[in-house]
Design a binder for these strands. Sequence first.
RNA 1: CGGGGCGUGGCGCAGCCUGGUAGCGCGCUUGUUUUGGGUACAAGAGGCCCCCGGUUCGAGUCCGGGCGCCCCGACCA
Length: 446
Amino acid sequence: MRLSRGFLPTLKEVPAEAQIASHRLMLRAGLVRQTSAGIYAWLPVGLRVLRNIEQIVREEQNAIGAQEVLMPTVQSSELWKRSGRYDAYGPEMLRIRDRQDRELLYGPTNEEMITDLFGQVIKSYRELPQALYHVQWKFRDELRPRFGVMRGREFFMKDAYSFDASYEDAVATYRRMMLAYLRTFQRLGVRAVPMKADTGPIGGDLSHEFLVLAPTGESGVFFDAALEEQDWLHENVDIADHASLEVFFNGVTRFYAATDEMHDETSWEDVPADRRREGRGIEVGHIFYFGTKYTESMGISVSGPDGAQFFPEMGSYGIGVSRLVGAVIEASHDEAGIIWPDSVAPYRAAILSLKPGDEAVDALCERLYGAAPDAFLYDDRSERAGVKFNDADLMGHPWQMIVGPRGAKEGKVELKRRATGERFELTAEDALAKVLGTDGAGKDAA
RNA sequence: CGGGGCGUGGCGCAGCCUGGUAGCGCGCUUGUUUUGGGUACAAGAGGCCCCCGGUUCGAGUCCGGGCGCCCCGACCA
C-alpha cells in the first residue's frame, strides 16, 4: 500500500475517551474508529491484523480436525426457549423484533444453534466425534463497555463446539483443544497461560481460561514459570492417541496457575520461590467441557452401538479474536507505539522514503515496493523524515526500510528492527531477503 | 444498574460562574522554506456551540426535559 493513497488516519493527539495503551494506540495508528459505545469500525490496517489473527486461529483449529462453519449473527428466540436460556440469559442479550413481531436476538454465543444443527445431521455414534467452529461477530450488551475492542459490546470470536460419544472421548477432545490453544497463542507472539477456571453457571468440571500476560490485565495471575517457557509448537503430541494427550495434559496442568479468584496460598507456597510468577492477565480464550447440558435440554440424542439413544457429551471453546488485537498490543508496545509480532503485523515492513522526488531514492523505493506490494506500506508522502519515523514506530511494523539520498546512491537500504531498534545497512536484495524471510511463526514469542 | 464527569471546526481544549453576535494549539488548503526523528513564515478554508423546549431585547453561557460519550464500582470472551 502506498501511504499517500491509504485510508490510514494516524493521529498525533489522543482522543479523550481512550484510557489504556492499546485503545489509544489503536486509535492513533488508525486501526479502528468507534461508532457507538463498545462498537467499532475496523479500518484497513486494523482489519489486516484481525484477519491475520483469525487465520492463525483457523489453521490451528483445522490442525486438530475441527471443521469450520459459519452460523448467522441473528438467531430465533425459539432455540433459546428450548434450552431454557432465553429467560435465563438476562439483559446482556440484545433482543430484537422483526416486522412480524417475531422475537429474534443478536447472538451472544451459539451453543443452542450448533446443538440444533448437530441434531439435524448426526444420528449415530458412528458419526462421532464432531468438532465444529466458526469465527463470527457476537453481541453482548455489556453494562459498561470499555478499553476499546478489549471490552466491546460487539466482538469477533472463534467459538468451537465438540460432540463426543463418551466422557473419555470428550476429555481427549478437551485436551486436543488445549494444545491447539497453546499453539495458537504462541504463534500469535504472545504468552498465554492456561489457568483452571470456575465452571460458573454453565457447570461441568473441566475448564481453563487462557490469559495473556500484560500489566493492564483485568485479573491478577499467579503461575509457575515453567508455563511460559515451553515450546508448544514443537511439543510432540499424537492427537489421535488418548495416552499421548494425557501425558501432554498432565504436563501442563501439573504446574500451578490461577487467577486471583481461584488463587490458593497453600499450593502457591509449594512452587519454588524463584519460579513464582505474579502479574496481570487478559483473558483471551476459554475452554470447557459441560457434558450433556445442551444435548439433554434440547433433546438431541443419537443411537449408540446397542441401538439405544444417548446424549452426546459436549464442550465449547472460545477465543476472543477482536480482543486479541488489543491484548497483543497491551503485551507488546512501548512509548513510541505498537510493536507487532511478525505473525500478526499488518505489513511486514514500512518503506520510508526520506526524500520523495530524489531520483535515486524514488527508484530504490519503487524497486523495494515492487518486490512485494502487499507486504509493504510505502510511505511516499512528502512529509519530513521525522513524521515518517514517528508514524512507522507508532504503527509498529516489524521492519522499517529506510531509504535516504546518501544510501540510495549506492543502492543501500537501512533496515531497522522495530522490536529491538537494531539497524542494518544492506543492499536492496539483502534487505528484501531479510524482511520477507521472517515468517514469524513463534519467533516473537516473548 | 449505583456514583461522578463531559458534549464548542477533523483531534485536543478555553469561553459558561458574572448572557451582548465564538477563540487557541494541532491537523487541513495554497505559496515560500526545510529535508535523517512531528521545520519555519505568510495567506486561507472549515463551527446546526449534542437535540428539543423555556426565560430574555438578546442564550455557547441561565432553567427544564431528552440523547450521546467517558470514568469509578458491581458484571463479563
